[in-house]
């Protein structure tokens, strides 16, 4: 028996190509070859359609109010609270200024489906990671690419690609609906207005950042169910729980405006602040603070997650 036989190559292999592209292609095949793809797709289409109906109805009545409003004068209600007066003043201004109303309605319609769209993109990012452990495919993945950081980076890129796809898809749908609605009411598309363009562009940025955030969450919480629950609950809670709670704290416990400003620390609220053309709420910080907070979370989650993944035993 010989022990030094050279193995005759029985198969010819072409050049493998650059590693990052290979990895992203592999990730895209993973998404496309399972149900995730069209389940999330259908979800986004349904919620965008629903949001479009709601926002055109609301926009319709807002535009009518603003167009009909004559020379009303702003009078604050009973309260003497500065934050409350500011909020009322802002609302009054928007409600009584037709061009501002048009801009805010257009921005709202053109970013329809954002609420659930962002959540779905985040969940796709999460599932990209947790699926590997849930279905025990991590072994296969890391055998093909022992450089784990490269794998995580390719998943980040893939999440952003998915985000871009969802953004383009929902935006095309909303632009068509919004343009038809506005011209039917006899107004222009408002697409020449910076705040409107800004809302559309930042919507795209938000999609990308939530995709990244989702990947980070998936690496931090390996359990599929755990990560999905934590992700969606903290996302929804950010909108429906955190804001009222912080306002209660402000009203009854710490009567300092920084309490309100600090709300930006919660990712879902940071995202709202970044996207909103007006102040998202009274004493909200500037939009870029929201953006920085989101980027910060993404980098933090991503870095911690990558470090954990590099050291983790796959067994």
């Amino acid at each position: 028996m010989t022990t030094t036989t050279a193995v005759a190559p029985t198969v010819a292999f072409p050049d493998p190509g650059p590693a990052p592209l290979r990895l992203i292609r592999s990730e895209l095949i993973k998404i496309r070859s399972t149900n995730v793809w069209w389940l999330f797709g259908i979800g986004v289409v349904l919620f965008t359609a629903l949001a479009l109906v709601v926002w055109t109805l609301i926009g319709n009545s807002q535009i009518d109010t603003a167009a009909a409003a004559g020379n009303d004068v702003f009078t604050p209600s009973q309260g003497t609270d500065a934050a409350q007066i500011a909020a009322e003043r802002q609302q009054f201004a928007v409600e009584h200024d037709l061009s501002r109303t048009l801009i805010s309605v257009a921005a709202q319609i053109y970013t329809s489906g954002q609420f659930f769209g962002l959540m779905f993109v985040m969940l796709i990012g999460t599932v990209l990671i947790t699926n590997e452990f849930f279905h025990q495919t991590a072994t296969t993945t890391f055998l093909a690419t022992p450089h784990r950081t490269a794998v995580i980076l390719s998943k980040l890129a893939t999440a952003m690609l998915a985000a871009a796809f969802f953004w383009i898809f929902t935006t095309v749908l909303s632009l068509a609906t919004g343009a038809i609605f506005l011209s039917a009411k006899g107004y222009g598309t408002q697409l020449d207005q910076w705040p409107v363009l800004r809302a559309i562009l930042f919507n795209g940025l938000a999609y990308a950042l939530w995709g990244v955030l989702g990947v980070g969450l998936g690496v931090l919480i390996r359990s599929q169910i755990g990560a999905v629950l934590v992700g969606s609950i903290s996302y929804v809670a950010g909108t429906f729980l955190i804001q009222p709670i912080v306002f209660l704290i402000y009203t009854f416990l710490i009567k300092k405006t920084w309490v309100l400003t600090a709300m930006v620390a919660w990712p879902a609220i940071a995202s709202g602040i970044m996207i909103s053309p007006e102040d998202a709420y009274p004493y909200a910080p500037d939009w870029w603070v929201g953006g920085l907070v989101l980027v910060g979370y993404s980098v933090l989650f991503g870095a911690i997650g990558t470090l954990i993944t590099r050291r983790r035993d796959i067994s």
Partner: peptide, 26 residues
């Protein structure tokens, strides 16, 4: 390594294609 390491909802062929893509095999 272990028998169960493929996504339940993926076909055998797609499982292999995903590896091919990562490794740069046709």
């Amino acid at each position: 390594l272990e028998a169960s390491s493929a996504h339940k909802g993926r076909t055998g062929r797609n499982h292999l294609r995903m590896i091919c893509a990562a490794a740069g095999f046709p």
